[in-house]
Amino acid sequence: MKNTAEASTDLARRRVAMALPLLGGGLLGLGGAAWGAAPVQQRSSRFLMGTQVDIAAEGAEPARLSAALDAAYVEMTRLADMMSRYRPTSPVCAIGLAAGLQPVVVPAELMQVMLAAQALSRQTGGAFDMTVGALKAWRFDLGQVEKPNDQLLNRQIKLVNYRRLILNEEAGSAYLMEPGMALDLGGIAKLPILQAGMQVLADAGIRNALINGGGDVFYRGTWQGRPWRIGLRDPRQPQRLLGALELEGEGLLASSGDYERGYFSPDGQRQHHILDPRSGRPTQGPHGLSLLARGRHAVQALNGLGAAIMVGGMAAGRRQIEANSGLEGLIVDHDGSVWQSPGMAQGLRRRRA
């Protein structure tokens, strides 16, 4: 079995993002920097949160731009370390170690993410549940190629229950009520972490920037005076694009899919990393989806919703998207059918035209 570092490196090679920023005909994240007379532009890529995180920014003198990009990565790394279930010293691991014993005082940033996760769990009737960390039999991060034993999974699924996570906002503490319970914030921590990186750039006066974390794309302003171009991969054939969107101003395009990370297919049945909290097994719903929200509150609108739709299915996803007038979406279902909200379809048609 591979060690964690080797597995993380392989994961970076395998991961295919549904949302793909396109800059000047090339792909964001190939390294290097492009220097124009005005404005100055920089691109940078680093491995973080099990994926490649890319930043493109422009509009400041080179030294200030470089410092801002470095500071954004430092802040994102700090938060990623805090919210990781793979770092033995993280507060998330501490909560699991103290399960059934005592509450654990947690940083304010982590508390806010967990409160948002609890709210989404209630909203979706448990289709999203951060206590899926108890399903330790699944180890896609370590190159797993065999299905876990059913008896082991059946024992672990009994420990998945968001209602048995007690969050005391006044005391700043979190308590898992049963030994063996554990948290996995993979479906809800990444967007706040990427948002924090974008906030660092904004605080440094960078008005035009994009951060892409494995297909979750924050954008602000424009690129070379034109809208950002972001292509949407086809989950059925990840080497091709369904189309591209032109976006400017401020917003977020978030993607989820069963093709994004390591998976295997024993006996012809596809096993992937998005787990259904109700069964303890990989979801059988959509292959992938992209959600678009504009404005400063995009994270609140989208965070965790992609994972919930992957569990809840196409019909529930459509209802959630259509009920929110500020939300656009595209869903590719398990049978290959594609549904798009009117705004998403219009954006993709306009780009193809």
Results as ranks from 00 to 15, higher is better:
K2T: 11
N3G: 08
E6P: 02
S8I: 09
A19D: 05
L20T: 11
L23H: 01
G24A: 09
G25N: 07
L27R: 15
G31E: 12
A33M: 11
A38V: 08
Q42P: 08
Q42V: 12
R46T: 09
M49F: 14
M49Y: 05
T51W: 05
D54F: 06
A56V: 12
A67R: 15
L69V: 15
A71W: 15
A71P: 07
A71R: 10
A72S: 10
M76F: 11
R78K: 13
M83E: 13
R85M: 10
Y86D: 15
R87E: 09
T89S: 12
T89D: 14
V92Y: 09
V92A: 10
A94L: 06
G96K: 01
L97C: 14
G100W: 03
L101D: 13
P103L: 12
V104I: 10
V106Y: 07
A108T: 10
Q112K: 14
S121M: 03
G126Y: 11
D129H: 01
D129L: 01
D129A: 03
V132T: 13
A134G: 06
A134I: 02
G143M: 10
E146V: 12
P148L: 02
L153E: 03
I157N: 01
N161L: 11
I166V: 14
L167Q: 01
A171C: 06
Y175V: 00
L176K: 06
L176G: 04
G180R: 01
A182D: 07
D184T: 08
L185H: 04
I188T: 13
A189N: 04
L191T: 07
Q195H: 04
G197W: 01
M198F: 05
A202W: 05
A202F: 05
N208Q: 15
N208Y: 06
I211F: 13
D216R: 14
F218D: 00
G221R: 04
G225C: 02
I230N: 02
P235T: 07
R236P: 12
Q237T: 08
L242P: 00
L245R: 05
L247E: 00
E248G: 04
E250Q: 07
E250F: 07
L252I: 11
L253G: 03
A254E: 09
S256I: 10
E260N: 06
R261P: 00
P266N: 02
D267I: 03
D267P: 02
Q269N: 14
R270A: 00
Q271N: 11
H273P: 02
L275H: 08
D276G: 03
P277H: 03
P277Y: 00
R278A: 09
G280A: 06
P282L: 01
P286N: 06
H287G: 09
L289T: 03
L291W: 01
L292T: 05
R296D: 14
H297V: 13
V299I: 09
A308T: 00
I309F: 00
G312A: 15
G313K: 00
M314G: 00
A316L: 14
G317T: 00
R318S: 04
I321N: 04
A323Q: 09
S325W: 08
V332Y: 01
G336I: 04
S337T: 15
S341W: 06
R349F: 00
R349E: 07
R350G: 11
